[in-house]
Design a protein around this nucleic acid. Structure first.
Lengths: 405, 405
DNA sequence: CACACTTCATCAAATATTTGAACCAAAGGC
DNA sequence: GCCTTTGGTTCAAATATTTGATGAAGTGTG
């Protein structure tokens, strides 16, 4: 039987160091004395920890402005250019890439279109390599590259980096992480770890750490891209499931007598609230239209289209009832086209939501993603920062060879 | 913003002590050297930890049988009578109570029937008090009573012990924990902590710690009592949600055009796989029949009833598809009447289950609860042992006044 | 039956980390 | 200009794990 590993003394040090660095990365600059209050540690200990992080170049200390009587406390902040990650949001029609500094600074952001036919892994990887070159040039010297995070719209085993299924890309069992790693190694030599994850999982991570759901510990994020992806955070931790495939709420069956879904099942949620369902609200829009077109028509007072859109809203609500009953979350964050249409259909959604069990219904809020188009991108960067935030010294040591440019 | 509390040295000690005791409680007796291997700690450290637990009377050491060359290692085992908990499974038609010793020993088990009309909290509490008297008499002197766990078929906030809704009992917003505590205090003086939880949450806890799903870290338990309850363990931890109301999968809508559910919604899973759906497979059974009656009819070769039961099986499968897609669990454990009918309808269930996403489908196993009728009871005892297993010394100290009898 | 060999428990010393107190530095208030 | 308050620094004390040495308790072999 497995047993949670026992802790030793260096574990304590590592944990405390990680706690301090994570606080600075997520919450921004704070004074030393606030750190003392937040961590519950002794002044001396906090001092030692901050000094260690400062020696590593990860943080800087500056005299703070005096707020009242007494000696002003030193304000400690992360050094955004000390360690960076590369983040990619690999979408169906384009790839977005960025360099993010410690603390969440977006140092550079580039976007490259990609025709739907050019989704073959080989081409995809070449594109990412090109962008990597471009992005790394924006990083000052001496900066350490600690990792790369990539979001993919498909079913991904985050541990192995294997993309099991990505219907919108036409991928099946693509060992994406491995492919990227070998290509990068050919080009750059040894590279820091690469993390491939489901886009919605990264979306919820981002909205939880820097978006609409920072205050909540139980969050559901729904990505409306082409299909419907889902990411779930429970008790502050990303839900992954046995193989990292958890959270595929788009293929929750809400209407067993409904239309066939490409997953093989019938009446999946995706079939009634996916992008196509919204475009279908106006005639002939399915192939070329945009979600915004539908919203414009509604704004112009077309009652029939409004009613069709409300129907989508009702289905959205029906699925949300299930999620609320199952997860009892504090916040449900809607991204992509779901976030776009929500203001218009909110009343329909909320009316359905009242069918949820009262106790859970009372605790939940439905909201639109506040990071907008960058949820996945930011989540990707957070996933790549995770090792550094979990064990700063060790990760820095291992990554110290990856000095950018 | 919240921050995970930093660790100090005594935290380490507490954690290691807890690790060792938990291993002994869950996995039974092991030699000291095996503990060294399991925990990764040093021989000396393990020795010190075991000694401390032995001083507290929680464990005993005995010379082990020699298995090969070399000095035989001491075998360390829990002292089942050192610390006990009371566990109650509060059902619709009866209450089951037991005293459990450390290590999971069932020292005594009693059962009291209760007419459905006698479910008023006042009567319920009197029954529990009576049983408490009876159970405590079975405990040797000097034994420390560290807590009481109670499973209730309803929506419970485990933190506050408030039963928000328990339709089968007719309860709404009953502060069960508080009521029991005050009554117990009147009778016994100060008493150790009382934990009230949802019955299915305790079911999954039990099957995960001592039942069908010990090897898995992602488990779903479905209790088929009157309605359908659900308990979920993710990454080894019980999923609770924001208010402890999570896991109510019985009210997942699987058929929006279906029949009205008593929760107010329409087409909940409970309406198609609840006890009533099964009894409805044979005529006039709804009010007085037993699930076993239906199975007997099927065994006798009644094709029509078999087909009706298969239909229930299909609905079971449809809901499981959702759960598999959403949670990606390793094991789904069926309890209560769902466990009873499963052998008969397995093929129907599994056929539907093939509609789940392949990656998740391949990883999941459907099984019948191995603890049978005692899942909730055993889970209740584990919930009451939790504080002791998390911080042995502190809990023992606080509980030391509650010497049984 | 004695001796070598293996494995394990125990003890003292070493190491590492947090804690707490004393002391000093820096600001505001009177 | 002095006092009070707040906070950083330094150093000894306390505590937990690890290391290494030593002896104990078995098996196996000649």
């Amino acid at each position: 039987m497995r047993i949670s590993l026992a802790a030793s003394q260096d574990e304590v040090r590592r944990h405390n160091l990680a706690t301090v660095l994570r606080r600075l990365h997520l919450g921004g600059a704070v004074s030393r004395s606030e750190l003392v209050a937040l961590t519950g540690l002794n002044r001396s200990t906090v001092g030692a920890l901050v000094n260690e992080l400062a020696e590593q170049g990860l943080v800087v200390e500056e005299p703070g402005a005096s707020v009242g009587v007494g000696r002003p406390s030193l304000v400690v902040a992360v050094q955004p250019r000390s360690a960076v990650v590369l983040a990619f949001d690999f979408r169906v029609d384009r790839t977005v890439g960025s360099v993010m500094g410690l603390g969440g600074d977006m140092i550079e952001r580039v976007e490259r279109a990609r025709s739907q036919s050019a989704s073959a892994p080989k081409i995809a990887i070449q594109q990412i390599l090109d962008m990597t070159h471009e992005l790394l040039e924006c990083v000052p010297e001496e900066t350490i590259w600690v990792g790369t995070g990539i979001g993919v719209p498909g079913i991904v085993n985050a541990k192995s980096g294997l993309v099991s299924q990505a219907p919108n890309l036409g991928w099946v069992d693509v060992p994406f992480e491995q492919l990227i790693r070998t290509s990068m190694q050919e080009e750059f030599g040894e590279v820091p770890p690469i993390f491939v994850s489901n886009d919605a999982d990264l979306g919820v991570l981002a909205e939880h750490t820097r978006g609409r759901a920072v205050a909540a510990r139980n969050v559901i994020y729904l990505s409306g891209e082409v299909g419907i992806g889902g990411g779930v955070i429970l008790n502050g931790e990303l839900m992954s499931g046995a193989g990292g495939f958890g959270g595929e709420v788009g293929h929750m069956v809400v209407n067993p007598s409904g239309t066939k879904c490409r997953c093989g099942s019938r009446g999946c949620w995706e079939t009634v609230i996916g992008r196509a369902s919204i475009l279908n609200c106006i005639p002939d829009a399915e192939m070329y239209g945009e979600v915004q077109d539908v919203l414009t028509v509604v704004e112009n007072g077309d009652d029939e289209v409004q009613q069709r859109l409300d129907s989508v809203g009702r289905w959205l609500g029906i699925g949300l009832v299930n999620l609320v009953n199952i997860f009892n979350p504090e916040v449900i964050v809607l991204g992509g086209h779901l976030g776009q249409i929500y203001p218009t259909v909110a009343s329909s959604v909320l009316r359905e939501l009242d069918n949820a069990l009262r106790a859970s219904r009372d605790q939940v809020t439905v909201a639109v993603a506040s990071l907008r188009d960058d949820s996945t991108l930011i989540g990707a960067s957070e996933s790549a920062f995770a090792p550094l935030l979990n064990s700063p010294l060790e990760t820095l040591n291992e990554s110290s060879t990856f000095v950018a440019s």
